[in-house]
Design a protein around this nucleic acid. Sequence first.
DNA 1: AAGACGACCAACCGCCGAAAT
DNA 2: TATTTCGGCGGTTGGTCGTCT
Length: 234
Amino acid sequence: MDGMMGWRVAEEGWRKGPWTPAEDKLLMDYVALHGEGRWSSVAGCSGLRRNGKSCRLRWVNYLRPGLKKGQLSPQEEGIIIELHALWGNKWSTIARYLPGRTDNEIKNYWRTHFKKKGKPLQNADNKKYEAQFSYHQDRNIQETMNTTTSSESEVHDVGMIIEPPQAGPHETTALTGQVATCGQQQQNSCVMAQDVAKWWDNVSEDSLWSGFGWNLDHDHPNQAVMEQSFGPCF
DNA sequence: AAGACGACCAACCGCCGAAAT
DNA sequence: TATTTCGGCGGTTGGTCGTCT
C-alpha cells in the first residue's frame, strides 16, 4: 500500500491550490445530489479536476453547512485547552465538542495561540500537570455548583457531550443517560475558560511545557478528571 | 513608504485503519 | 486470508494580510 493509490494522485491532471467559486459550486452540487462520501468518484460525476482527498477536505473544512467562521469564543478556547490536555493532538475528537468548528481550524488555532508558548510536557511532568489540572477542575465544579445564572443567548454556542475518544455521543447517551444539559455545560465552559486562562499563565511561566507526553490513548488515564468535570459519561 | 515579521488560514502530504474485493 | 481501495487524521507548508519598525 503506498498511501497514494486510494486517491489516485499519481494520475496526471489533478488541479491543486486554492479552490475557485466554480469548483466550490460543482462540489456542492455533487454533494447535494450524492451526499457526502464517495469522494473518489467526484471527479467522474461532477467534472471537477480534483482528487477525492482534496474534495473531501474542501467540503469538510469549508463548504459543509453549519460551519462557524470567525474567532473562537473564550468558551470554545477553554474547551480546546481542556480537551487537548486530556487527549493531546486528537483534533478531530476535540472538534466534535465544538459544533461548527473543524479539526483543521482547531489545529491551526492551537498552533498559533498555544504551541508558541512552549513544548509539550513529557511523561515525567505528566503527574505534576495532572495534579494541577485536577485542582482546577475541582474548583471549577465547586464554582459551577454555586453558579445559578446562565446566559440563554449563549446556550446554542457550544453543545457539548463529553465522551472518550472511542465512543460516540449517542453511545454515551445510551450507556449512561447522564448527559449534562447545554446550559450546565455552558456554565462549566464559562468558568473553565476563566480558570483555564489563569492556569495557562501559570503553566507557561512555570515551564511545565518542558516536554509533555500526550499519549493519552492508553486506558484514558484522565478519565477521572473528565468525570469530575462532566459527570460519569463513560 | 517599504521591508520585516508574525498571525492566521487554506490546502497538501504521508500515514494508518477499516471496508471491500 | 491477502490484497486493494477508500476515508480519515495529524503534521506541515505556503500564501495573504495586518502591524511594527
